[in-house]
Design a protein around this nucleic acid. Sequence first.
DNA 1: GTGCTTGTTGGCCA
DNA 2: GTGGCCAACAAGCA
Length: 268
Amino acid sequence: MPELPEVEHSRRIWDAGLGHRVLKVLVPHPSVRDFRGTDVRALQDQLAGQVFLSSEANGKQLLFRFGRAGSLWLGMHLGMSGRLSVESDSIEPGKHDHLILRQAKRSLVFSDQRQFGRVLFHQGIEPPDWWARLAPPILSDQFTVKAVSNFLRRRRSTSLKAVLLMQERFPGIGNWMADEILWRAYLNPATKAGELEPATAAKLWRTVRRVTRLSLASIQKDWDYPATWLFQHRWDDGGKCPRCHSQLRRATIGGRTTCWCPTCQAAR
DNA sequence: GTGCTTGTTGGCCA
DNA sequence: GTGGCCAACAAGCA
């Protein structure tokens, strides 16, 4: 379930290898979809022998930096089922392990069952272009109420649910976070973006930031989310709203399975 | 066998 | 050109 907090959590998992050299790069299945458009050979040849310097996350994107000059970059998107882990230095690749960075005392492993993820490789002192072009992070100063209001206006005839999933404005928000945000803001997921009054748009902006902050804090502490969140009830048939105990509803909105409380989030 | 799935992209259409 | 919708991608699970 890699949305913003899970991506940030994944980033930290590989921190175990920071400052250490990559001795060997294993790519057991170079033709998997995760490597579409990537020069796997260059990735393997160039990263071998280099030190793992730093990592960064923005939304669902990850960027790892390597090499003495810091000029080697490994970009990553976890897709639907991507996972980062740290295993022993001698771990043999499993069926879904697609990239293994072998270090002296551990292996940094990327695995991805469904292959919706992506691994990119870039050489150069500057970070890759695609990274520089990403939308400003939700918790940054550039994520303003004005930027959100303008976006809602431009996308006026799209449902709020679909709008929140657009990475160009809400980097890192995925299906469950979008539902959590709308539930907390008492907004119906099918409401058109253009229908929000300025005060409601501001409330949505605040709630996007709050859910992002709380989920990051929560995953750091407990690796889970509180039972008071919609998150813990959304997948059970017969799930109840943790606030008013109404029966939750589920339907496809904005092309995705959406869960909401018909009482708290009554359509206007 | 059937019909789902927490993401993104490209193609089609208005 | 812009915006909106949806099938497709792959693999596993109920």
